[in-house]
């Protein structure tokens, strides 16, 4: 019950802030859409005309996942930095629920809220390009869930680093390009990347949305990798977060402004 109350409180806060910072939210969506338009124009202008359709479809899926990765993983780093600067991080750390639980609910609530934006962006992109992808919810949902758990793990690592390091902004800016690279790389080029946090998930969703693969066609070994990644990265993320929290509490870094 405590968990549910925590989730409700954080979802409401995320929603209020999204609404209250509406110009900011809209600017972010427009910027992302503009980036997509740039990619779309690039494919049309200099891309191979024979593979143009498939390239555009790839671009849509990759770009949507990039946005998702940014929202889930990068945002938590910015949030921690802002909370520390505002002076509210110490209050969060004084909650008897433990700051990690607050972070879990923040990750879930921001993902759910941003998912609405992501779905809207997906349909606008498909409408712009005239390329309609296969939205097989039953197949995509379990893949997405497992992928999101591993993303949450990375989110925790970033949150932990953000607590300890004061100048984390530069790192977060670089990170968004690393995330872009990981979402855009096809697994056929680098099969070992399947064990990176979300690359396998993006690859499977690409197969579903572009090639029309259904859940029955996806082998159990693929789900095994997804499951392993989810557990491994979430656990690793938590361990790193706890480690960083301890460093911060030893050195008095919870209020660095």
């Amino acid at each position: 019950m405590h968990w549910l109350n925590l989730l409700k409180a954080n979802t409401k806060k995320e929603y209020i802030e999204l609404k209250r910072y509406l110009p900011n939210t809209l600017a972010m969506i427009v910027t992302f859409y503009a980036i997509f338009l740039g990619m779309f124009a690039g494919i049309q202008l200099i891309g191979d005309p024979s593979t143009q359709d498939i390239n555009i479809q790839y671009a849509i899926v990759n770009y949507i996942f990039w946005f998702l990765a940014m929202m889930v993983m990068n945002n938590i780093g910015w949030e921690i930095t802002n909370e520390a600067m505002r002076g509210t991080l110490e209050q969060l750390c004084m909650s008897p629920m433990g700051v990690w639980r607050i972070m879990v609910t923040r990750l879930i609530s921001s993902t759910v809220l941003n998912f609405i934006v992501i779905v809207a962006l997906l349909y606008v992109s498909m409408l712009t390009t005239g390329q309609w992808l296969n939205i097989d919810v039953l197949t995509i949902l379990p893949i997405l869930m497992l992928t999101l758990i591993s993303m949450f793990g990375v989110g925790f690592m970033i949150a932990g680093i953000s607590i300890v390091l004061k100048q984390v902004q530069a790192f977060l800016q670089i990170l968004q390009f690393i995330l872009a690279g990981l979402t855009f790389i096809p697994l056929s080029v680098a099969p070992m990347f399947a064990y990176l946090p979300f690359v396998k998930g993006v690859d499977l969703v690409r197969n579903v949305m572009i090639d029309g693969v259904t859940i029955s066609h996806i082998g159990w070994e693929s789900f095994l990798i997804l499951g392993f990644n989810a557990i491994f990265y979430f656990a690793l993320g938590l361990i790193i977060f706890f480690f960083c929290e301890r460093i911060a509490m030893n050195k008095g870094l919870l209020a660095h402004y």
């Binding site: 109350n5 409700k8 409401k12 806060k13 209020i16 910072y21 110490e90 909650s95």
Partner: peptide, 25 residues
């Protein structure tokens, strides 16, 4: 600890009270 810095400035008075109560479960 930090007086007015312990609050969320873009939330209302009631929203702050609601949020911090929820944060303690």
């Amino acid at each position: 600890l930090e007086g007015n810095r312990n609050l969320y400035w873009r939330l209302t008075v009631k929203e702050n009270l609601d949020y911090f109560a929820g944060n303690r479960g």
